[in-house]
Simulated assay, not measured.
Amino acid sequence: MAIPPGNFAVNLSSSNAAGGTTTGSGAFLIGTSVKVVAAANAGYSFVNWTENGNPVSASSTYQFTITGNRNLVANYKAIIPIGTSVINLGTAGDFAILTKSGISTTGTTSVTGNIGVSPASATAITGFGLIMDTNGQSSHTPIVTGKVYASDYAVPTPANMTTAVSNMETAFTTANGLVTPAPIVNLYAGDVSGRILTPGLYKWSTGVLISNAGVTLTGGPNDTWVFQIAQDLTVNNSAKITLLGGAQAKNIFWVVSGQATLGTNTDFSGIILSKTLISLNTGAKVTGRLLAQTAVTLNASTVIQP
């Protein structure tokens, strides 16, 4: 844009093209009162105006007197309502770890929450040193703060486990099929290492990598992240998922059509809904849930149900 002599430029942009639009850009004489307006698209809300990364106004209508060139960015965040209206885990939400074919552990593992398998039997839960409860409906072990369930335990456990697994599969299908708000597609070509991600729906036709640089999720306590990953989720050794602004692990969904591999000493947050294997290497910690349609393998790992 050519700027006439004695004028200054107001340049506007949006942090997310799908999030909304802006009006009010142009060339203005010094001392002119300028009004810029940000309009969020359906499924998004306005956050603030920033300049050079610094917030300058929290109002979608920002009025100022121009004294120099301005480069303003309108920031939007996706609105995904939390709870059953988005991803209902059903009775799968009663488990820290739930699988169809098995759960195995080596080393000193710690799980806070229930674990269970179905249609696999209790013999598919290995390394836990299970002790059958007197009612035959569940078992326990010193390394699980909760109950252990399997399809071959006493009634009503088999029916309950069938329902929980069905709910897990439905949750995966629902989460993987979300299209609202408009997804952010193939962001950073699947390598989100060192990035800051705001709430929203993200979709990749590839795998997703988180290197030891980690990734930061910033948003409020009622904000939701849904990550639709068509291939594998790979979290490298010592990577950390950092939560800022009150973001909560229970509102983060990693929907993985391949397998999820968490490297040594990773610090991971969120619910993994995996079509296949979830593997935790030595010292990996998860604040969330591991819900796999095949197996979960642990190696001196920690899982804490949020």
Rank of each mutant, 00 (worst) to 15 (best):
P4H: 08
G6N: 06
A9P: 07
V10Y: 12
V10I: 15
N11I: 15
L12I: 10
S15W: 03
N16K: 05
G20D: 07
T21E: 07
S25R: 08
G26M: 09
G26K: 10
F28E: 07
S33H: 03
V37H: 13
A40N: 11
A42M: 11
F46W: 05
F46Q: 09
T50E: 13
P55G: 04
S59K: 12
T61G: 05
Q63G: 08
T65N: 06
T67W: 09
R70C: 12
A74Q: 04
A74F: 10
Y76M: 12
Y76V: 12
K77N: 15
K77E: 14
I79V: 15
I80A: 05
P81S: 05
I82R: 14
G83E: 00
V86L: 14
F95M: 11
T99R: 15
S101C: 09
S104P: 04
T106K: 12
S110F: 13
V111N: 02
V111A: 08
T112Y: 06
G113V: 03
N114E: 05
G116E: 05
G116H: 03
S118P: 10
P119T: 14
T123H: 07
I125S: 05
T126A: 06
G127F: 00
F128D: 07
M132F: 10
T134Y: 12
N135A: 11
G136T: 13
T141I: 00
P142W: 07
T145C: 10
G146A: 09
V148S: 01
Y149R: 11
Y153R: 11
P156I: 06
P156R: 06
T157N: 05
T157Y: 03
P158N: 02
P158R: 09
P158A: 11
N160Q: 11
M161D: 12
M168T: 13
L178G: 13
A182E: 08
P183I: 02
N186R: 11
N186S: 12
V192Q: 00
G194P: 02
G194S: 02
G194V: 07
T198W: 12
Y202M: 08
V208S: 06
V215Y: 01
T218S: 11
P221W: 10
W225Q: 01
F227Y: 06
Q228D: 00
D232Y: 02
L233G: 02
V235P: 01
N236I: 02
S238R: 13
S238F: 14
K240S: 15
I241V: 14
T242W: 10
A247V: 07
Q248W: 04
K250H: 03
S257Q: 15
G263S: 07
G263T: 04
T264N: 14
N265W: 13
I272Q: 01
S274Q: 08
I278Y: 00
K285I: 11
V286Q: 03
V286C: 01
R289H: 08
Q293G: 04
T294F: 11
A300E: 10
T302A: 07
P306W: 02
